[in-house]
Design a binder for these strands. Structure first.
Lengths: 196, 196
DNA sequence: GTTTTTCTTGCGTGATCTGAAAGCTTACGG
DNA sequence: CCGTAAGCTTTCAGATCACGCAAGAAAAAC
């Protein structure tokens, strides 16, 4: 069953809105861009914007949510025999370092966008939803990998811990001066997690 | 330096607003209560409400944020010789089980309030800020306890992981049918964390 | 008791988000 | 093909929210 023109158009509009929201926010700041502006950039009415996203912040973080969810799929795709810890580390290194990025979002927009989201109270809540999305995706993938029952706490706990560790690494990465690569930070954060 | 009348009044107003916000929300749902209602309940103007809280959701979760931050102080207060893992577990068991609750908030309001916050998209972001507050408080306390340098990732990573584990336990607790006590869930979640 | 600071309040404004109905576009079946 | 059904977009209107500003009231400082 092909997606059909209608569905493809919808996805395209969604992506365009999310991207415009992110880009404009990076350029002008959260309060410097109105929903109206984003809609105008894409060529739709403001009301249509809210048919896709229930808030400006949600649109800005939509691409990040998509990316977070892909982490789950990536973890599922690791070789079945691989030990869990290695699989997770490898997955996170690949995903977070932007190697696999179907969205053609310029690196600087990602970076500055993240920095801005983290620094703006009105968007912090939404960013934490990104983390939650990643946690859920990881939990599901881990449960799938380990074949644990639905009552086992382990997948959720590990998913949450890994997401938290990655968030810490990302935070450090954003504020590192001089800049450092993200990979080693992620690796170290995950190692420290295992230390505990 | 005593708090002074002015400061005490401010804190009282703040608490009253936060409590009214929580209670009314539990009774009528997030959309069923207006900022105007909360202000009226406490006997201040709506404008004053926004002098204390920058959003309705923030007010609703304010008491939870206070509680989360107390976790850090509680961890600092554990005996210095105690192993970190034990100290954390003991702290979380005491704090989350409501044993130490200076706010005289009825248990049912806490429970239903949490359930409602978790179920309402408009408040989820704010709840995640509660988690962030707990994570920060724990990180600081852990760093203080271990005497680690400011560049060490471990305190932040552990703080995040513990906060995540507690959130998982809380989630299960809220949806457990039939109801189960929170303590054992927290204990197990923290144990699983160490398993990884 | 006066002065000064701080908090509260009322008013006005800009922005966000949502419901409902009308118009246009796509999909489907003959 | 063509007409009908379904879905999406748009316009319009309304409700709420959050905030800046200036004036008034309460507390603190002197």
């Amino acid at each position: 069953m092909e997606p059909g023109l209608r569905e493809r158009k919808k996805q395209a509009t969604r992506r365009a809105l999310a991207l415009a929201a992110l880009r404009l926010t990076v350029e002008r700041g959260f309060d410097g861009v109105l929903v109206e502006d984003i809609a105008a950039e894409v060529g739709v009415s403001p009301r249509t914007f809210n048919n896709y996203f229930s808030s400006k912040a949600e649109a800005i973080c939509a691409l990040a949510v998509d990316r977070a969810q892909r982490a789950g799929a990536a973890l599922r795709a690791r070789p079945p025999g691989e030990p869990l810890r290695e699989a997770i580390t490898a997955t996170m290194l690949t995903e977070l370092s932007g190697g696999a990025a179907p969205e053609h979002v310029p690196d600087r927009v990602w970076f500055e966008g993240l920095r801005m989201v983290l620094a703006t109270p009105a968007m912090q809540g939404e960013y934490l939803r990104v983390r939650a999305a990643m946690q859920d995706a990881l939990s599901a993938a881990i449960a799938n990998r380990l074949g644990t029952g639905p009552d086992d706490l382990l997948p959720d706990v590990i998913g949450g811990a890994v997401a938290a560790a990655c968030a810490v690494a990302t935070q450090r990465w954003l504020h590192a001066d001089p800049p450092v690569p993200l990979g080693p930070l992620v690796e170290e954060a995950l190692r420290r997690l295992a230390d505990y």
